[in-house]
Design a protein around this nucleic acid. Structure first.
Lengths: 345, 345
DNA sequence: TTGAAAGCGGTACCAG
DNA sequence: CTGGTACCGCTTTCAA
């Protein structure tokens, strides 16, 4: 059962050559037999299969990579793998990739542009068959992505994308916030605040845009002091929310347009002894389980993370298979009503 | 700047052979020059370096893998990458690995034994330089791990380990729970309940053992109905906690010895209108941020996830570098007091 | 200082 | 149906 064989006194993995030598035949015959290609006598084929199994032969993938310059490996870059949102997407992406016979190299850019560039270069030098990336928050130069495309390596961007001519997968950022805003207005909210990430991210800009659009549609004056876009971190959300509560006229509804910002807002509101949703309504963007563990459970915009990962891989796979047309997929995100908003009818 | 060169009408990555051909010299000379090995004339060396840079030459890692049977890649297997605890460990592990020049193939066993076995086999066939694994909850047969060792591929187990002769990294499971239990008794708790994962996991067994030990040390009778070990999932914790609250004499303190179980307990207690910590105290095992987003913040046992990942890689790297001695590292976890326990002095 | 050639493991083409 | 051999990119001996 051991995979190692003693050749010339050194232990090494058994190769087709070894099998050929043992049986006193030629490598090419072994190769054909093992691949099930026509042109090998049935009993010889059987003998080869037998010995291969006995010796625990497994093909050396690097010989193939070398020959065909394909590694059946794809590179995945996210800002932070330990963040639930990305962890889930990566998980589903990897499942799809595995089904199609691809391994994933998953790497974390720590949300920094320089890291992202270095990782992309490294992946290129590893000869990955394609790259799937969610941009760092400070990525505003995209030349590293174009370089990938120039070398005709497939590439897909998801979630945090940019206005570039590359395939993308996102949720309906603008429209989802627009709907949330309308919903809050319908609930009777008069002063809706918007909590977002860095203004440099197109995702934040798009979501903010949906918020502003909805206010205009309902002829509600836009109050600059109710818009806070700094950083996606919990602590940033906490101070921003405190500032909002300190306003002479504090908001009566919050749209927290990024993962932990809703939890930060929740905490801040709680710390002031205000009630949710009676005093302030709250809507977040998060995973089910993060909403579930809170009391009351947070009303949130649900993104189909399985779909984001799956579609991202699909677009990449299309490119790998020769379809180089640029595609833009927009997935619908749904508002999931829980207990931090209350419809007033 | 392009990395591709037109050879025979086909675009391909530039190789040492190409450089040699262009300069009308031999590949071996190029190889030596590029590696900085002695034995190449200074001006020729310069010319080669120049051209290589110009053409964007990067070595083909598969040629090297093929030659040396080393891939500078390590395989990492966790039960669930999207679970915050593992996501963090994996992140730090990957950082360390990267520093040492290794890529990580991170894969999710979905907490299933069969998947774990298949993944281990697959990684072996990929020629990873080592494997780091956290066992699935139903893994009770370890032959797949021994097979790895037999083929002299380095292997390290972490977090959920087994009593096997392989290198391991864990926290002080038993003792940490022992301390927590003592602490709760000091707080005045009379009926402490223990919420754990599957009994098949050594980790759960060890933690439960710490709980029982402490009770014995303080001569507190052990009540079977206060021990619930089923599953690490949120829903399982929820029903277990409900059952505990339905007891004729419900507990006045809970030790939730696994990630989301504490949040489940929190939710259940809340749903009954009980106060934390006044009516029931609660201690969990979780990340800072999961504790932070709760109100009140949950008192928890803090594990140094960076250390777990770092040490796991270190043990693996030792083996890769020829030190095959089996090592067992036990990291200290610290009780972090927050707001769900109250010391009565 | 430089060149020639073998070899890592597999595939593919051409001969027999 | 089977064998021989060149080749993928790189390193490493041995020879010049």
């Amino acid at each position: 059962m051991a995979n190692l064989i003693n050749i010339d006194g050194r232990m090494k993995r058994i190769s087709q050559r070894d099998i050929a030598k043992i049986l006193g035949i030629n490598v090419s015959t072994v190769s054909r037999a093992l691949r099930g290609v026509e042109g090998v006598g049935p009993e010889l084929k059987e003998k080869i299969a037998q010995l291969a199994k006995e010796q625990g032969y497994t093909p050396n993938p690097f010989a193939l990579s070398l020959r065909y310059d394909t590694t059946r490996t794809i590179g995945v870059i996210v800002p932070n793998v330990s963040f639930s949102h990305f962890a889930h997407i990566v998980k589903y992406l990897e499942m799809e990739a595995k089904k199609a016979g691809y391994m994933c190299i998953i790497t974390d850019s720590d949300d920094k542009y320089e890291n992202e560039v270095a990782i992309v270069e490294h992946m290129m030098s590893m000869h990955v068959d394609g790259i799937i990336v969610c941009l760092a928050q400070d990525t505003t130069d995209y030349s590293h992505l174009f370089r990938v495309k120039e070398r005709s390596v497939p590439i897909v961007i998801f979630d945090r994308i940019a206005d570039v001519n590359l395939s993308t997968v996102v949720i309906n950022d603008t429209d989802s916030v627009r709907q949330v805003t309308h919903y809050l207005i319908d609930c009777g909210a008069k002063r809706i605040a918007f909590l977002g990430g860095s203004n440099r991210m197109k995702q934040t800009a798009d979501r903010k845009h949906g918020y502003l659009e909805a206010l205009r549609e309902r002829r509600i004056p836009i109050r600059k002091e109710l818009v806070k876009c700094h950083n996606t971190s919990f602590n940033s959300g906490l101070t921003d929310m405190m500032d909002l509560l300190d306003l002479p006229e504090p908001p009566d509804a919050i749209i927290a347009a990024h993962g932990l910002l809703a939890n930060a807002a929740f905490k801040a509101i709680n710390s002031r002894g205000l009630r949710i949703p009676e005093d302030i309504a709250l809507v977040g963007y998060m995973s089910d389980w993060v909403s579930d563990i809170m009391t009351p459970r947070i009303t949130f915009v649900k993104q189909n993370l399985r779909d984001i990962g799956g579609k991202a891989f699909k677009l990449l796979n299309d490119q790998i298979n020769g379809d180089f047309s640029v595609k833009h997929i927009v997935l619908k995100a749904r508002l999931e009503l829980r207990e931090t908003t209350k419809k007033i009818t």
